[in-house]
Design a protein around this nucleic acid. Structure first.
Lengths: 203, 203
DNA sequence: GTCTATAGGACGATAGAC
DNA sequence: GTCTATCGTCCTATAGAC
């Protein structure tokens, strides 16, 4: 348990406190999105006052970026482990087919709806030009598209188009699933869609 | 031009004033999302004070629902006209194939990115349980899925699964397109995806 | 029916003491 | 590293003028 029901009065080391703040904020943003997030709620859950919280993250936007950076690192680490690859790969796993990589990604996402909701909500929220995470998600979209495209280059007529369609289906299915978790089987829907998308891919 | 740069002092009929308010709010929500929307900004753009604005829409949530209802009506009307059908159909056009209906929808969406962004942002924002538009989008998702499913029943093995994939691709492509309008051709990407999704559909 | 004036409560952020 | 005090802005509600 990293939260505190009332005021702790404990003086934590900076790194440990920061980790606690990121964990709490990840949970709260996943529940209500970034705009609904109150610094007061985060501070309360950490046993801090609001200025105490701001001392660590600078601003509400700074808190958001800290959460996103931590999730990115966590995702890369976890996916590399799941695929039996070394954790030294800074970005995307090498030497694996796009269908296999996507399936691993979807299977992992299906086990953590709160994290998926955090990304789904923020990805759409950040379509607004001035959003604090706009540049983060723009860069992320460019990076993922480049990785997906590279994995099917020379194997299909239009690799970039297939890459976009794969991204679109994964993101779109996540939204359908989050709004109706019991009526939608994320993994099954993805595998069905993948069968159609990757039909003409030589494996 | 339905906005006012300063205070108008004009006394408009209720229906006309309401229409003006909805138009202004539609634009502002499309630019920054619902959470970033300030009632003060809406009132200013309409030449009103904030309580004057609230008299017409009741609350900020009421304003949001008024915007969504108006867009729904507008979309149905426009799509029916585009497909050469009567405007008496309350819901979805009858007697038309799913691929044709989707193509018409995508072609129309490609001409109005601001409206598409409004729906994309709100759809994701409303994944948060307490969001004022949560029930609206949940109902909308059920309705669209039922309509899509009905249009391919008895023509594919798993009509509901295909319906979900079609919804997912359309929503997902819109997000990719909105973040990179110049690098993404929404209609072309949809047609390419549709070719894969509807491959085994007897037309 | 339509609007102005005003006030309450919550939020993000800053300055400065300990 | 954490606190108290304070500011400006926002949404909402009420009372009452036209």
């Amino acid at each position: 348990m990293t939260t505190a029901s009332r005021r702790d009065r404990t003086r934590l080391p900076a790194a440990q406190r920061r980790r606690q703040i990121v964990d709490v904020a990840t949970r709260l943003i996943g529940e209500g999105g970034f705009w609904a997030l109150s610094m007061q709620d985060v501070a309360d859950a950490c046993g801090l006052t609001v200025p105490g919280l701001l001392h660590h993250v600078g601003s509400k936007d700074g808190l958001l970026l800290a959460v996103l950076d931590h999730r990115d690192a966590e995702n890369v680490r976890s996916l590399a482990g799941q695929l039996g690859l070394g954790a030294d790969a800074v970005g995307w796993p090498q030497g694996i087919s796009l269908p296999r990589a996507c399936e691993a990604l979807v299977r992992r996402n299906a086990t953590q709806p709160e994290i998926v909701r955090l990304f789904s909500v923020l990805q759409a929220e950040s379509l607004a030009p001035g959003h604090p995470a706009a540049e983060y998600f723009a860069e992320r979209q460019r990076r993922v598209l480049a990785e997906f495209t590279a994995m099917v280059t020379d194997r299909v007529p239009d690799p970039e188009s297939l890459g976009r369609q794969v991204m679109a289906v994964m993101d779109g299915l996540q939204i359908l699933w989050l709004r109706d978790p019991d009526g939608t089987d994320l993994v099954a829907e993805w595998l069905a869609a993948a069968g159609r998308l990757f039909a003409d891919l030589d494996r």
